[in-house]
Design a protein around this nucleic acid. Structure first.
Lengths: 208, 208, 208, 208
DNA sequence: TATGAATGAGAATTCATTCAT
DNA sequence: AATGAATGAATTCTCATTCAT
């Protein structure tokens, strides 16, 4: 599930066991990183929280940064999975877009603490890992690009093809917006209102 | 200039000197925080970079977090000042909006490393300081709200008044977008194209 | 042995090891505190003296004050143990008192550097610990109260019962006297003479 | 008044001014040392408390230890002066002794916080200064020796002359006792009861 | 595989003292 | 005489990582 998990070497050979223990580690660390941030969480705390000894934990990772990577990767997997739930090839592009945006905002709202985590702690990752995380981000963005393109093909969305990447990114950013600026937005709008208005705005741009 | 600077107590009484030395500290720390991040920068490095002994530096701050606050506050001041340069009361709201958005995106592009800094390190600030930083963010957003409202009043912008806060935040987020996702956007658009398209999109929403 | 030792949390689980390492720490610190005082002794010196790395030492204590507490507690244990050696239930109260006083003065003389340590550094302890140390002091005083009361019961000591606490404290203070004012007393008296005179003085008060 | 004050060199030549400023310093420092102890009090705090700038303060002392010495010396002066108030050459030795003991206990009770200070912080003084402080202690003890000797000479006190120093020290220690062990003694006795019992005990020894 | 004691470089902060003004 | 900004050595404590059992 945590797709990139195999990028991180482990001392332990048994694949199944590695998978299982890392799930434990992710569960414990996620909670802690969210509450205290990456830097203020110690490896000891992570070990304790996930029920392993430090020695054992280090059999499954190499550095503390690995844990952060594991967590970020897992969150991305979750985001992507939840988004894909709402996708269907049988609908028109326009319908798909509306559903996808609604789901995207809903998920970003529900997992907002996790999303925050990704955007705030990614910079603590070593270059390679940071790149891999950006790649995931790109992939999710690509999902929206595909929907937009499908809409163009089936003539339910009228949009200059050169605007497709921009609009996909705009959608992504709208999602983040709900997690980063909720402190201000929630004073004025509910998630449903927010979704309705933003979707309407975007769709209008895609209407002849 | 660094408006909130007087929130942080100093051992040194001479106001002028405090102002001056803190400017030194900000200059040195900004550079380092940008390059290495807050946590990986040591107080000794900051002191060395800004040409003070640690002892002396600590006469002007109380904790390392104070330096971060000083830096964030300074960046916000810069952003706000640069944005205000482009504002003028004599134009129509629509004209103002176009200029302000262009300037905003330009500034966010130029200072993108600094902007990144604010959004990534703010969480390391103590609660009080974090709140003060959010306040600054609100104030800049308010500038766009005022422009939008002026446009509504002078009938050059047609927008449901309840959408004003949302659109102001959308503009803010578009600015951040250019700093956070430039790695992806710059593959497709120049800053000018980005500005043109986003402005057009937003203005269309404000056209009957 | 260092009875209160378990009040101080340790990172290390193995009870036996904790006992052992703390004994090491006490041994090293006692010597240093005696020579240089608590404040002028650094944690690194303590670690070096007791053959542990600082990191390791800090696995067994939480703060430098903990070391002081451990040392004070250990000294009290020693004092109490040595005093109890001389006690016997089978003798008359009067005989007991004489033996106990002699032993007390002897021990206070032998361990005078340690005793000095307790009385001079206790104030550097956090409140809770200071209270625990006073408690030990009370317990030793109580030993003398019991002897006096036994003497009253078996009619070998004639003393107003309301004077029992006062006399017990007087004995304690006589013991400290030999450590605190030896610089002056030793010019005139040997420990034996001191013991004889003070015992005689006190016993006379307890003779009809 | 602070007799030994001239042992400590000052940058300032004007004797009167030195006297005056040092009195200021003593007043401020005494309070702080009592509350926080010598080590936890900073020179800056002392300067602030006594209304001088640090620079100025250092014109009148050489090191922080000097301040401690000044304070201890001043306390001793106070103790001695208060004790001497109660002395009179015209009474019998016995009467003198009773009055002196009562006054001694009273003063030690009243100034107990200061007395504590002397006994707990003296060890922080450099050797020379520590010796000077012990000298003061000796002098006060000598006052009691003189009274005892006068009593022997005028036949109102019957005491083996070789016991004179011991008894003088016993009196001194009884005084300290009331400051050091008040936490326990005050549960059983008032200062008056304490004085009466201790005086009676001592006088009995001096009665044929 | 699992454990957890050991390590020590490294970090933030303090504070007595000086000295140019 | 008075001031107070500057200094930097010194101090306590932390924590990611290793490795012998």
């Amino acid at each position: 599930m945590t797709r990139e998990s195999n990028r991180i070497p482990s001392m332990v050979k048994n694949r199944k066991l590695v998978e299982e223990r890392r799930a434990q580690i992710i569960r414990g660390a996620q909670e802690l990183f969210m509450r205290k941030g990456f830097h203020k969480t110690t490896t000891r705390e992570i070990a304790r929280e996930c029920g392993l000894s430090i020695g054992t934990m280090y059999e499954y990772i190499q550095t503390k940064e690995d844990v952060l990577y594991l967590v970020c990767d897992h969150i991305h997997s979750e985001l992507e999975a939840r988004l894909k739930e709402a996708l269907s090839e049988t609908e028109t592009g326009r319908e798909s877009l509306m559903k996808a945006m609604a789901q995207h905002f809903r998920v970003m709202g529900e997992l907002s603490d996790w999303v925050l985590l990704i955007y705030q702690e990614t910079k603590s990752l070593p270059k390679e890992a940071r790149k891999a995380i950006l790649e995931r981000e790109k992939e999710i963005t690509a999902l929206f690009q595909e929907i937009l393109e499908r809409g163009i093909r089936d003539h339910t969305l009228h949009l200059d093809p050169t605007s497709v990447p921009l609009m996909a990114h705009n959608i992504m950013v709208m999602g983040q917006m709900w997690t980063f600026r909720r402190w201000a937005l929630a004073e004025h709008y509910t998630l449903e209102e927010f979704t309705r208005r933003q979707t309407a705005w975007l769709l209008q741009e895609c209407t002849p």
